[in-house]
Nucleic acid binder design. Structure first.
Lengths: 189, 189
DNA sequence: TAATTTGCCTAAAGCTTTTAGGCAAATGCA
DNA sequence: TGCATTTGCCTAAAAGCTTTAGGCAAATTA
């Protein structure tokens, strides 16, 4: 019997594709085995278990997102950078809803430490160089930006803003305007 | 054999408790049957299927949250109201993480329409009466507030802000200050 | 009390997860 | 090239979750 050429990496990538097609929740070891036309047990040589598979997909998504963000931020500053980073998250979530959901997967501390999570925080912080904030306000602002990006994108993806005018692109633009104004004029204690 | 006295309502409430104890993801028809010391199949007379059970728990959580929000908003306006509503979400998520996760469960359109979702939007809009915003900015602001509340709470709950100073209470306070300032000084087009 | 409804049961099929052990293909080395 | 080792995928099997079908007994109603 010819071999299918399974590796943890190929499984992870295929899992990410599967997530985008059917949703991260529906990614299962069985479904993945079916996709490779291979028996389920075969996957267990490459991936520890279902949780491990999901963790790998999450890490992949976080890497991809961080790569896109790094590229988008290069050569930009101020509001330009703010918008670019925000759009990276929003676009990624729309192009790859399953991967975006995966990026929200609760990682155990070990995995979290090895993830691109730190790069994300770094890049958000980098944006603030274009504004005049010092610690601890800078950290507060990093958290605010993270909250807005994540909150908006997941509400929009979940259909939270659906059935109402005005359209979400308009809102997104205005929210970024508002955040820019807020960062330029951050209130004192 | 004595009857256990199952009803859709009791199952839903027990399911919500179970969610808070073990996580919404882990709420299963089997686990719930175990909790009532009853055979699994018995639940299917009261609840259509696993998805239906989760939907009911989600609707319960949305109701509870809306009730708390309504009570918190009574007699408050401006920043006072903003803070009160924000705290309702954050406190609820901390007290009832499983229910809060349930409230994020993707509802099908029929369920969504019958949910307390509309009340939530109404209450956020009510807060803006204390600020000077007209449409469409009011809608943009409603969406921004929803994004921040949801985004912050879920990142905090997921441990996103864990291993770093300053503490999250401080950030939360400063973010609400910032939002208040932003709403009082909403940028023109 | 008899008839009806309701509630929980047994049985069973199908799917997912995970472990154990085995044979064959690929690879490394003389 | 030929042999030994490693690697990859397999079969088998146990255990848990979901869901449907059909049945008997308890509760309700007349």
């Amino acid at each position: 019997m010819a071999r299918a050429g399974l590796t943890a990496d190929r499984l992870t990538r295929a899992g990410a594709e599967l997530a985008d097609e059917v949703g991260f929740e529906q990614v299962t070891v069985s479904a993945l085995a079916r996709r490779f036309d291979v028996k389920v047990a075969s996957l267990y040589s490459h991936v520890r278990n279902s949780h491990d598979l999901k963790t790998r997909i999450a890490l992949l998504a976080l890497e991809e997102l961080a790569d896109r963000a790094a590229e988008a931020l290069a050569g930009r500053a101020g509001k330009d950078a703010l918008t670019a980073l925000a759009d990276v998250y929003r676009d990624y979530a729309r192009e790859h809803p399953g991967r975006y959901a995966a990026a929200q997967f609760r990682l155990d501390p070990a995995a979290a430490a090895a993830s691109a999570g730190g790069r994300h925080a770094q890049m958000t912080r980098a944006i603030l160089r274009g504004y005049d904030l010092t610690e601890p306000d800078q950290t507060h602002a990093v958290r605010l930006l993270g909250s807005v990006f994540h909150g908006y994108v997941s509400l929009e993806l979940g259909g939270g803003f659906s059935h109402s005018a005005p359209d979400t692109q308009e809102t997104w633009t205005r929210i970024l305007d508002a955040l820019d104004a807020l960062l330029r004029n951050w209130p004192e204690r």
